[in-house]
Design a binder for these strands. Structure first.
Length: 317
DNA sequence: ACCTGTCAAGTCTGG
DNA sequence: CCAGACTTGACAGGT
C-alpha cells in the first residue's frame, strides 16, 4: 500500500503566494463598475499565479495531492459582479493551472465552504448553494479538468430533521448536472458522522471522503477500519480519499492543529492498512500546510511501522 | 511596519 | 426574536 499526502490552498513557505486574495464587498461597491472589475481581475490573476507557483512547489517535493482555494475569483458569486465574463478574461491563467495538473498527473480538488449547503429547506439558500456549485464547475471547466476534479461537500445543517435534510441533499444532487462525477461527500463533526455520510453517499451514487478527525470528535476510534474500508469501496475511478488532522488542544478539540500528531496518524493509517487498501490519498488539514506533510512523513518513518516513499508518501513496513 | 477589528455567505444555541 | 458563536485568511483602517 502507498499513502500519498497533500495540503490545502496555501504554502506558507512561499512568500507572497496567497491564492485567496480578495476585495471586501464594501470596498468593491464603492468603486465604479469598470475599476471594480479591473481590481477583481488583477486579484484573480494573482491568485491563479500563486496557485501555479504552489503547484510547482508541491510537485518539486513529491506532493501529488492539492486542494484549490475556493476564492480564486474574488466575489465571483456576489451580485456585484453579475454578468462578469471571468472565464473569458482569465482563460489563459486557468488553462495554465490545468495544464500543469494534467502534465504532472496531480490529484486536485475543491471544497465549497459551509455557507453553501445543498440541503437547506430555504429556497434562496439552496439557489445560492447551487450557484456556488456551478461556479466551482466553471472553474474546473476553465482549467480544462472537467470530469477529473471532485467538489468535496458536506451535507449541511439538520434543520430540525436530519433524515429530511439528507433527503433534500440527495434530491438536489440528483437534479444537478453530472453531479455523480463532480461531487464527493464528507462526514462532519456535528451532525452527519461517517456511517450517516456513507449511507447518503451510497444512495446518491457519489464517493465518500472519510474525515478521520471529524469521525473521532463524534464517535472516537471504534470501527474505524471497517468504516475506512466501506468508504474506500465508494471510489471506483480514483484511489480512495481521506482527510486527516489533529485537534488544536483539549479545550478546542474540533479546531485544527498546526501539525499532525504522529500517534493519531498511526491509528488512522493503521485503519487503512488493516482495511487492505492498495492505495490511499490523505489530505492533511493543518495550519502548517505543506510543512505538515513533510513533518508527518519524517515522523512516521522515525516511529517504525512505516517507511518514507519520497517526501510526501509512505508505505507500511 | 505592525496591530486590530471586520468581513459575502448559513445554522444553531442561548438569552 | 435577536445577538453571538462558529471558522479562516485576508482586507482595511489606524497607529
Amino acid at each position: 500500500m502507498r499513502v500519498r499526502f497533500g495540503f490545502v490552498a496555501m504554502a506558507p513557505g512561499l512568500a507572497d503566494a496567497s491564492p485567496s486574495r480578495t476585495l471586501t464587498a464594501t470596498a468593491a461597491a464603492a468603486l465604479d463598475p469598470e475599476s471594480r472589475l479591473h481590481r477583481l481581475r488583477a486579484l484573480a490573476r494573482a491568485n491563479l499565479d500563486a496557485t501555479l507557483r504552489i503547484l510547482r512547489h508541491a510537485h518539486a517535493h513529491g506532493v501529488a495531492l492539492y486542494r484549490f482555494s475556493s476564492r480564486l475569483v474574488p466575489l465571483a458569486t456576489h451580485p456585484l459582479t453579475e454578468g462578469w465574463d471571468w472565464p473569458g478574461e482569465l482563460a489563459e491563467a486557468f488553462a495554465a493551472v490545468g495544464a500543469f495538473v494534467r502534465g504532472h498527473d496531480m490529484r486536485v480538488s475543491f471544497h465549497p465552504d459551509h455557507y453553501a449547503p445543498l440541503s437547506s429547506p430555504r429556497p434562496e439558500v439552496q439557489d445560492a448553494a447551487r450557484r456556488d456549485y456551478l461556479h466551482h464547475t466553471r472553474m474546473i471547466a476553465a482549467m480544462g479538468l472537467s470530469g477529473r476534479v471532485r467538489l468535496v461537500a458536506h451535507v449541511g445543517g439538520a434543520y430540525g430533521d436530519a433524515e429530511a435534510a439528507m433527503e433534500t441533499w440527495a434530491a438536489t444532487v440528483s437534479r444537478l448536472q453530472r453531479s455523480r462525477e463532480t461531487l464527493a461527500l464528507e462526514n462532519d463533526d456535528r451532525i452527519y458522522d461517517g456511517a450517516a455520510a456513507l449511507a447518503l453517499a451510497r444512495r446518491a451514487g457519489v464517493p465518500l471522503v472519510l474525515d478521520f478527525h471529524h469521525q473521532r470528535v463524534l464517535r472516537g476510534d471504534a470501527g474505524l477500519s471497517a468504516l475506512a474500508g466501506a468508504a474506500a469501496a465508494t471510489w471506483s475511478d480514483a484511489p480512495p480519499k481521506f482527510h486527516l488532522s489533529s485537534p488544536a488542544s483539549a479545550a478546542r478539540p474540533r479546531d485544527h492543529a498546526e501539525f499532525i500528531d504522529p500517534a493519531g496518524a498511526a491509528t488512522a493509517l493503521g485503519a487503512l492498512r488493516d482495511a487492505g487498501l492498495e492505495a490511499a490519498d490523505v489530505m492533511l488539514e493543518c495550519k502548517a500546510k505543506d510543512a505538515a506533510v513533510f513533518r508527518l512523513v519524517r515522523d512516521l518513518a522515525a516511529g517504525g511501522g512505516w517507511e518514507a516513499d519520497g517526501e510526501a508518501a509512505v508505505r507500511p513496513l
